[in-house]
């Protein structure tokens, strides 16, 4: 039995269809990355998996007793709430001191345990969030652009840690990321999402697939082009749009982040 399987899943937010016909399987030990333009439903998919959003149609089957570790895109902690790093790591379940120390060391932020969470830098907090998720010994780790706010070194460390976590815990990892070059190296499978699953498979296969090229620009070696999304293919009826000039991909660098 897979850890998680989505079967013809449709999700609507405020009456608008955000995800349609999603089929996805996750097995133990897999690292799967979701890529896709802004508004393509990546975060919504993760939120559906944790149960924060109810699907409008379709089936979502979690393995019984599945433990999920979740690292959100951002988390704003109200300044009126006093919270040390240690206390935060112990929510909602307490962990032994030794495990806490080890988790902080693994996350590359030893010695922060007595700090107030609100005093941490963005990158430090991101690492704490990951450490907290790992303390639960999850079967499935969900990361929503978890490397936001990390520097280059931090990002590399982060992916290395994910890799070793997968080896040690044997958990599956499903992550959303914009760092396509990093993603390609770190993932077993890439799922290209744009409200529906455009294509999925090994990184090499996805990169060379026409759907991926259409979504991220023809020249996939050009990382600038990777971020661009051409709204030139319609998923509902083929006659709706006329394709935009395909050369537009790399020639408007001002529009890339």
């Amino acid at each position: 039995m897979p850890l998680l399987s989505l079967d013809d899943l449709h999700v609507a937010l405020g009456g608008r269809t955000v995800l349609e016909s999603i089929d996805l399987r996750l097995d133990r030990g897999e690292i799967v990355t979701l890529v896709g333009p802004n508004g393509s439903g990546k975060s919504t998919l993760l939120r559906t998996i944790i149960g924060a959003v109810q699907p409008a149609r379709g089936r979502l089957v979690r393995q019984p007793g599945l433990t999920i570790g979740y690292v959100p895109q951002r988390l704003a902690i109200d300044a009126t709430l006093p919270m040390t790093v240690t206390r935060f790591l112990n929510l909602p379940r307490r962990h032994p001191k030794q495990a806490l120390r080890q988790a902080l060391e693994q996350a590359g932020v030893p010695g922060l345990s007595r700090q107030q969470v609100t005093d941490l830098s963005g990158g430090q907090f991101q690492r704490i969030l990951l450490a907290r998720a790992l303390l639960e010994q999850p079967d499935l780790l969900l990361l929503d652009e978890a490397t936001q706010g990390l520097d280059h070194r931090g990002t590399a460390d982060f992916y290395r840690q994910i890799e070793s976590v997968r080896r040690e815990l044997g958990c599956a990892v499903l992550m959303v990321s914009h760092e396509l070059h990093m993603v390609m190296r770190a993932s077993d499978r890439v799922v290209c999402l744009n409200r529906h699953v455009c294509c999925q498979g090994t990184p090499e296969r996805v990169v060379s697939s026409p759907a991926y090229r259409e979504l991220f620009g023809a020249d996939t070696a050009d990382t600038l082009a990777l971020y661009r999304h051409h709204h030139d293919h319609s998923h509902h009826d083929a006659t709706a749009n006329t394709p935009a000039p395909s050369a537009a991909g790399a020639s408007h660098p001002e529009a890339t982040p």
Binding site: G69, Y70, P72, L75, I77, P92
Partner: peptide, 19 residues
């Protein structure tokens, strides 16, 4: 207490922990 506190921090964080 713990469940309330986790839900106060973030709804999704709570959901992921089964709260």
């Amino acid at each position: 207490w713990s469940a309330l506190l986790t839900a106060t921090l973030d709804g999704d964080l709570a959901r992921a922990s089964g709260i």
